[in-house]
């Protein structure tokens, strides 16, 4: 269970207070206008923004004092998710320990690539991909990493209707089956209705 207990975040002179509980296998959608603190909350979960006060707990263990490298969090940022100088396949492998996934994990990655329509792109460099293709590749790596908390900042923003539907369903199923926790930011009411178990309107 992921719990934000009287969590206070600050950026400049702005402040946000959060209290929520998210059970394993469930999805929390963060909605609200620009500047309402959605990305700040995601970054605090990932350890990139310090917590002013309060607690962030996973199964009763405090995450707050841990540096980003040690948090069980996998993040899809709004940009710079793929390393431009290495191929798509190598970018995907970096999601696993020492950049060397075992056979089972890699076949899972390949299956996801086929499902989301990027399996032909593994030998290309990210610069050769469209915005939507880049987003799907980054999404696969982020979701299939063996981390208990998955954090997605506007994960479908570059996807058209069909791809958005397919990617969203896939993410939702992955999280539910593996009983992990998903937080994602969206501006689309349809996304919230289809995939969110809970909504945090900021």
């Amino acid at each position: 269970m992921l719990e934000a207990r009287q969590l206070v975040l600050r950026r400049g002179d702005r402040q946000w207070n959060h209290d929520f509980v998210l059970e394993p296998g469930r999805t929390l959608a963060l909605t609200g206008p620009s500047g309402s603190g959605k990305t700040t909350l995601l970054e605090a979960v990932g350890g990139f923004v310090p917590v002013h006060s309060g607690e962030l707990l996973l199964a009763g263990t405090a995450l707050t004092g841990l540096p980003p490298e040690q948090r069980p969090v996998s993040t899809l940022f709004q940009q710079h998710n793929l390393f431009e100088h290495i191929r798509v396949a190598d970018n995907l492998k970096l999601g696993f320990r020492h950049g060397r996934p075992d056979a089972a994990s890699w076949s899972q990655v390949l299956a996801a690539c086929a499902h989301l329509g990027v399996d032909e792109l593994l030998e290309r460099y990210p610069g050769e991909l469209s915005g939507g293709q880049r987003q799907r590749v980054a999404l696969i790596r982020t979701v299939l990493r063996p981390q208990v908390i998955v954090v997605l900042d506007e994960p479908f923003s570059a996807l058209d209707g069909d791809n958005r539907q397919r990617a969203g369903d896939w993410v939702h199923q992955q999280i539910r089956d593996s009983r992990r926790h998903l937080l994602f930011v969206t501006h689309q009411p349809d996304d919230t209705a289809r995939w969110a178990d809970e909504v945090l309107a900021l």
Partner: peptide
């Protein structure tokens, strides 16, 4: 460009 991504992936050392 990548500091946050590297931290998120927990990459360090030889890899």
């Amino acid at each position: 460009n990548y500091r946050r991504q590297v931290a998120d992936l927990g990459l360090r050392g030889w890899p």
